[in-house]
Amino acid sequence: MATTAPEPTDPAAREFVTHGRIDVEGRLVDASNVTLFCAIELDGVTGRVVYKPVSGERPLWDFPDGTLAGREVATAMIADRSGLGAIPPTVLRDGPFGPGMVQLWVETAEEDELVDVCAPDEVPEGWRTVLHAHDRLGEPAVLVHADHPGMRELAVLDVVVNNTDRKGGHLLAGTDGRVYGVDHGICLHTDPKLRTVLWGWIGEPLGAETAEKLRKLRSDLDGQLGAALGEHLTTFEIRALEQRTDFLLAEAVFPEPGDDWRAIPWPLF
């Protein structure tokens, strides 16, 4: 009898995602690049994964090097080694349409919203306000997000990897209580391009635990992690990653958006 897939935090999940047999079941049509929903099976264990074949990537003029799949894997490697944020087990492997990114599917608690646009007097208690604006009818509206420890760590990770597209829909409330970040194909550019909905902690201290994770990351970048990232990133991109980590350690606070680029993605979700 088949058993269900390991949880994302289970060490066995990586083996499962790396070596399981993949069968395509459908396509996620809202994605910019080919994104396939697949069944996976290994030794009687069954589950679901997302598969993004390199052959289905649309070329981006400002990300000419490597692949988007490689950038997703590189971001997951950084999160795994540093402990900054939760990303489902993510690997680069062959699939039905050639090499691509394969990531364990995360079961979500649909009733748990993490990011919202609402009227100023309807902000959930304890949530963080990111932006004041007006809706299409001219009524006041605010962009807000939950004040969740997992999202706070993903906000730090976004700065480190220079995430160009952290939409609200890229944050998943797992049924295990963790918040998972997905869709990291346009990260790790050398130029400042941070666009995220997670600006709710601007100016606040990173804290000792986060600083320790950043120090571990910085040390690993000078060792095995830096060497492993060379499979997916250019030397200049790895150097820029080191510089962003150094900057966060020196400043020790959540940074403000820059003035020379749009700091929030569109659409928001």
Rank of each mutant, 00 (worst) to 15 (best):
P140L: 01
L229K: 03
L249I: 13
G200L: 01
T129E: 12
A13H: 07
E25M: 11
L157R: 00
A252D: 15
G207I: 06
H148S: 13
E212M: 08
T35Q: 04
K167M: 11
P99W: 00
G44N: 06
L143A: 13
P205F: 08
D80C: 03
A109T: 14
E231D: 15
G70L: 13
Q224T: 15
N33R: 05
E25G: 02
P192Q: 10
W266L: 07
V117F: 11
L92S: 02
W127C: 08
C118R: 11
P64E: 02
R81F: 05
F16P: 00
R262A: 12
D220I: 09
L28A: 09
W105A: 09
P124D: 12
T4Q: 10
V144G: 01
T190D: 12
A86P: 01
T9W: 12
G169H: 04
D259Q: 13
E15G: 04
T3R: 10
F236Y: 08
G185M: 05
W61T: 07
W105L: 11
P149R: 02
L217I: 05
N33S: 07
R58K: 11
H170G: 01
D191H: 14
W199R: 01
P96N: 03
I202F: 10
D65A: 15
P149L: 08
E251H: 13
T235P: 02
L206C: 09
L198P: 01
V54A: 01
E113M: 03
G181K: 00
P255F: 12
V102M: 11
V45S: 00
V117T: 15
W105E: 12
E41L: 03
A86N: 12
V102A: 09
P99G: 02
R136Q: 13
T3I: 11
A252T: 11
W199Y: 15
I264M: 07
M77V: 09
W201L: 07
H145E: 02
G20K: 00
E139Q: 14
A208Y: 12
R27Q: 13
A252F: 10
A155L: 14
H189L: 15
A173Q: 03
A31D: 06
V182G: 00
P140C: 04
L92G: 01
K216A: 10
R215S: 13
R262N: 10
G44S: 09
P205E: 13
L198A: 07
T4P: 02
A173T: 01
E209P: 00
Q103S: 10
W61A: 14
H189Q: 14
T164C: 14
D135F: 03
D135T: 06
L221H: 04
D94P: 01
